[in-house]
């Protein structure tokens, strides 16, 4: 009940943000050099389609009505047509989402779980040589350009050692169903997941190291020790449980950053997800797709922020309306 009310409240708060994002998008289109209709329809579109676009977005009307028309189109789920394939952008994007989810989701789970564990272990011995080494290493990890790490992994494991495939999600002549298919996808996933999670791992190790050592200095941890709880329980029940709160918050806030890593990784590995789509759209100057992708990414991040908020509220009884 408490959570439901909280959820609805937060959902309401998202509307102005969504509106803000749409307005930014709208403003950018109008400020950009070149004809708005070309941006919306794509360069070299045939005159008939161009006229249709002008009609639909009310491009001959005053600006505020154009904004209205634009929002109206978006609400209908109309993100325009891809200039390249002439298909609705929303469909093209939807098609690509599962692959991105698979890649980013796997890497996220891997990195966050491992990161929290390593960070928590380091927080037990703050200032030790091991702690300093791991901190330095994790800083270096997230300083690596993710696309470059991907290339280096390809160079090592695909080109030199020939252990793993370097691109795509499935082998060209591979099985299309059953366990063979799953294994095939898994093999293709190893390198992109590795590069993506390596970078994120650095973030999570640092985050959880800071957060856990913070909670370990809290009075309730001293109480737990005075009560006589063994250190392992102190860590899990008292320190980690409380440290999860800031970790979850940052996780939600940094999702946008994570997604940008996913886009770059997909580009390197020709992974058929959203990132690859954006890359292709850039190469063919397919603006409707780029704009659509920005909107979808923004809404995804908002949704994720909403979910982490909810998770936070579930974890922390102190959150109230």
């Amino acid at each position: 009940m408490r959570l439901l009310r909280y959820f609805l409240f937060r959902l309401l708060q998202m509307f102005p943000i969504a509106l803000f994002i749409v307005v930014i998008n709208f403003a950018l289109i109008h400020m950009a050099p070149g004809d708005v209709s070309i941006l919306l329809a794509g360069e070299g579109a045939d005159p008939q389609y161009m006229e249709e676009v002008r009609q639909r977005y009310g491009l001959d009307l005053p600006l505020y009505q154009q904004l209205g028309a634009y929002i109206g189109q978006l609400l209908q789920g109309d993100l325009g047509l891809s200039f390249r394939t002439r298909e609705p952008v929303i469909g093209i994007i939807a098609e690509r989402i599962p692959a991105t989810l698979l890649l980013a989701g796997t890497a996220l789970v891997l990195a966050s779980v491992l990161g929290v564990i390593i960070g928590a272990v380091m927080a037990r011995r703050p200032g030790s040589a091991m702690d300093t080494a791991v901190t330095t290493l994790s800083i270096s990890l997230f300083s690596i350009p993710v696309f470059w790490l991907g290339l280096m992994l390809i160079l090592l494991f695909a080109v030199t050692l020939r252990w793993l495939p370097s691109s795509g999600m499935v082998s060209i002549a591979g099985p299309r169903e059953g366990i063979g298919y799953i294994l095939d996808v898994a093999m293709h996933m190893i390198l992109p997941v590795l590069s993506l999670s390596a970078i994120w791992l650095g973030q999570y190790v640092r985050l959880s190291r800071a957060s856990v050592s913070e909670t370990l200095a809290e009075p309730y941890v001293t109480t737990a020790r005075a009560i006589g709880f063994p250190e392992r329980r102190v860590m899990s029940r008292f320190a980690l449980r409380n440290a999860m709160l800031p970790i979850v918050t940052v996780l939600g806030l940094e999702l946008g950053l994570l997604l940008s890593g996913a886009v770059l990784t997909e580009t390197v590995f020709s992974w058929p997800g959203l990132g690859r789509l954006i890359y292709e759209a850039i190469l063919s100057r397919d603006t409707p797709v780029i704009m659509g992708a920005f909107l979808i990414m923004s809404f995804t991040v908002m949704l994720a922020a909403l979910l982490t908020d909810l998770l936070y509220a579930a974890l922390d009884p102190r959150v109230r309306l």
């Binding site: 803000f20 946008g256 954006i278 920005f294």
Partner: peptide, 20 residues
């Protein structure tokens, strides 16, 4: 707060893609 929720990389990408 709103800006913190916007995926900045994509916004930058969009700006650069639109403006050259």
């Amino acid at each position: 707060d709103i800006f913190l929720l916007i995926p900045t990389f994509f916004l930058i990408l969009l700006i650069v893609a639109l403006f050259g």
